[in-house]
C-alpha cells in the first residue's frame, strides 16, 4: 500500500507542474499588471516602472518562469506582492478556515443525502420520492450566491439566529466558530446534497434488486438492516467516488461562499490574488488546489480498497 501511495504521488508531480505552467501562461495572456494595482490610480509612469523593476516584471516571462520553478525546487512558493508575506504562510494560515467549511458542509451533506437517497429509492414513485428529488434538483440548480443571500436574509436578518458573515477562529470561541460556519456550510452543502442524493437513490435502486439483498431479506433481517447493512454498504463505492468529485464543487463553492460571508479562507485568497494580479499568490494558491485534488483522488482510490474486498485482493 505504501509503495502504491508513493507511486501515485510521484505520478502527480508532472500534473502539478503542468497546472503551474498553464496558470502562469494564462496570467501572461490576461491583460492587467500588478504594478498598476499596487501603485494606485494616480501613480506616475516612472513610479509604475520602478515597481515593475522591483518585482522583476521587466524581465522576460521565461526567465521569471524559470525562477519560479527553481524556487519551487527549494520548497519556496515565493512572496506575495500585495500582502507582503510568504505565499506558503498565507495559504497555510487559511487552510483551517476553508477546511472547516468544507468538512462541515460534508458533515451536513453526506448523512442528509444518504438518508434522503435511501428513502427516495425505497419509496420510488411515491410522493415522498418526488419531494426529495425536487429538493435535490433545486439544490443543484440554484446558484450558491443566491442561496447564500437568501440564507442571510432568513437566518440572520429575519430570525437573527446566525451571524451574516465574518469568521470566529475555533481556538477563540468554539460556539462562535460553529455559529459563524453554519450558514456558509449549509449553503455549500446544498449543492452537494443535490448531487449526492441523486446518486444514492439511483445506486440503491440498482442494488435493491440484487440477489444478495433478497438473501438478506430471506434471512429475516429488518427492512432497515437490509437497506443499510446490505444495499447501502454495496453502494458505497460509487457514493464515495461522487464525494471525491464533489471536491471540485467545494472549491468553486468556497470561492463564492467565502466572498458572500466575508470569510478569510483560501477561496477568498484566490479571488484577491487574481483581482490584484498577484502572480506568486495566484501560482501558489492554484498549485495548492491542484495538490489537494490529487490528494483527494488518492484518498478516494485508497478507500475503494477498504470498501470492496474484490478491489483489495486484485
Amino acid at each position: 500500500m505504501i509503495g502504491y501511495i508513493m507511486r501515485r504521488l510521484a505520478a502527480a508531480v508532472p500534473v502539478l507542474l503542468m497546472v503551474s505552467l498553464l496558470a502562469f501562461l494564462l496570467m501572461q495572456i490576461v491583460p492587467g499588471d500588478p504594478a498598476y494595482a499596487m501603485a494606485g490610480s494616480d501613480a506616475s509612469v516612472t513610479e509604475i516602472e520602478a515597481i515593475r523593476h522591483d518585482l522583476g516584471l521587466d524581465r522576460a516571462w521565461y526567465l521569471r518562469l524559470a525562477d519560479w520553478y527553481l524556487a519551487l525546487l527549494r520548497g519556496d512558493l515565493g512572496h506575495s506582492y500585495t500582502l507582503r508575506a510568504d505565499v506558503a504562510d498565507l495559504i497555510i494560515e487559511r487552510i483551517p478556515v476553508t477546511l472547516s467549511i468544507a468538512l462541515y458542509s460534508l458533515l451536513i451533506a453526506i448523512p442528509c443525502s444518504i438518508a434522503m437517497g435511501i428513502v427516495a429509492a425505497r419509496f420510488r414513485g411515491k410522493l415522498i420520492d418526488l419531494g426529495i428529488m425536487t429538493t435535490a434538483l433545486l439544490g443543484v440548480s440554484l446558484p450558491n450566491f443566491w442561496i447564500g443571500i437568501m440564507g442571510i436574509l432568513f437566518f440572520s436578518v429575519h430570525l437573527g439566529w446566525l451571524p451574516s458573515g465574518g469568521y470566529v477562529p475555533m481556538g477563540e470561541d468554539i460556539g462562535g466558530w460553529i455559529r459563524s460556519m453554519t450558514l456558509p456550510a449549509l449553503v455549500l452543502g446544498t449543492m452537494q446534497i443535490g448531487l449526492l442524493t441523486r446518486i444514492t437513490r439511483s445506486e440503491m435502486l440498482d442494488i435493491m434488486h440484487k440477489d444478495y439483498v433478497r438473501t438478506a431479506r430471506a434471512k429475516g433481517g429488518s427492512e432497515l438492516r437490509v437497506l443499510v447493512r446490505h444495499a447501502l454498504r454495496n453502494a458505497l463505492v460509487p457514493i464515495v467516488t461522487v464525494i471525491g468529485l464533489l471536491f471540485g464543487m467545494i472549491v468553486t463553492g468556497a470561492v463564492v461562499v467565502e466572498q458572500v460571508f466575508s470569510i478569510p479562507g483560501v477561496g477568498r485568497l484566490i479571488v484577491q490574488a487574481i483581482l490584484t494580479r498577484d502572480y506568486p499568490l495566484i501560482q501558489g494558491t492554484l498549485l495548492f488546489v491542484a495538490g489537494a485534488f490529487v490528494l483527494i483522488n488518492l484518498l478516494v482510490d485508497i478507500s475503494y480498497a477498504y470498501l470492496d474486498p474484490r478491489i483489495r485482493q486484485a
Binding site: 444478495y212 438478506a216 430471506a218 470498501l307 470492496d308
Partner: peptide, 24 residues
C-alpha cells in the same frame, strides 16, 4: 415474517454467484 424467515423457513437460490453479499 422476520421471525419465520431464516428461522422456520429458509431458502436457497439458483445463482450462488450473486446470492451472497460480496463485501462481507
Amino acid at each position: 415474517l422476520r421471525h419465520l424467515r431464516g428461522n422456520d423457513v429458509a431458502m436457497i437460490f439458483q445463482d450462488p454467484m450473486s446470492s451472497l453479499n460480496p463485501v462481507q
